[in-house]
Design a protein around this nucleic acid. Sequence first.
DNA 1: AACCTTATCAACCGCAATTCG
DNA 2: GCGAATTGCGGTTGATAAGGT
Length: 245
Amino acid sequence: MGRQPCCDKVGLKRGPWTIEEDHKLMNFIINNGIHCWRTVPKLAGLLRCGKSCRLRWINYLRPDLKRGAFTESEEDQIIQLHLRLGNRWSKIASHFPGRTDNEIKNHWNTKIKKKLKLLGLDPVTHKPIEKTEKTSGNSSNKPDDDDGQGTIKVSPRKDDEKPEEIQLNLEETNDLFSNYHMLCESFDLDSWLNQGANTCCSSSYSMEESNKSSMGETNSTIQQDSLKQWVDSVDSFLSWDSFIH
DNA sequence: AACCTTATCAACCGCAATTCG
DNA sequence: GCGAATTGCGGTTGATAAGGT
């Protein structure tokens, strides 16, 4: 049997989105909202599949996106949530209004993972690497940049250069680990989670929901004005994007 | 200046979960 | 209740910017 592909890929465009495509998608969603992603590209006049449109909207065009680098406290919160939820990025993202699961996942993979490794912590278990190795006795889980003796080797820049060794001896590792746990303990995740749950926005955001929640009782003129402001702001970062590209 | 390596992040893919007829 | 359609999620890839040699 098997499932049909979600969309007919023949003749569909792939790769980076153009400003024109972004405008088409935005205009369509502004005017019509989102009812069925599958029909969005067809109705909006886009040669993209519905999945691609959804992703573009959620990760880049949504009006409530918070752009910019993650703060240290956001990073701490991500680590906390990862400890509890694992790689459930959408769940984690739901506690960061304006952040997307993709953004958090990328940040985790490129920055936080390295930070934890430097602290001598396994990014998967959040436990000291030595400990997990000794207890598991499974060398296949050993990070390739760790020599198993509390020393993390950073890849050399040159072939003839000795790897830079960051001496994280056991004492230092334990100190870092206890600090890390003090941070974990002092952080009231539950109350924060509850607070986040009230303010979080679902990844399946739509203009209809946006209108209901943020514009609820305002009149249509104000709605039009805010919408215009948003489109203007999106226009400004779109042009900036095209400039830097 | 040219080349190479690494880091970053947008976008894609495949599968699971959910919805719909 | 069942199967097909659709949506959403997490892992992965690929383009490109940034930095180093």
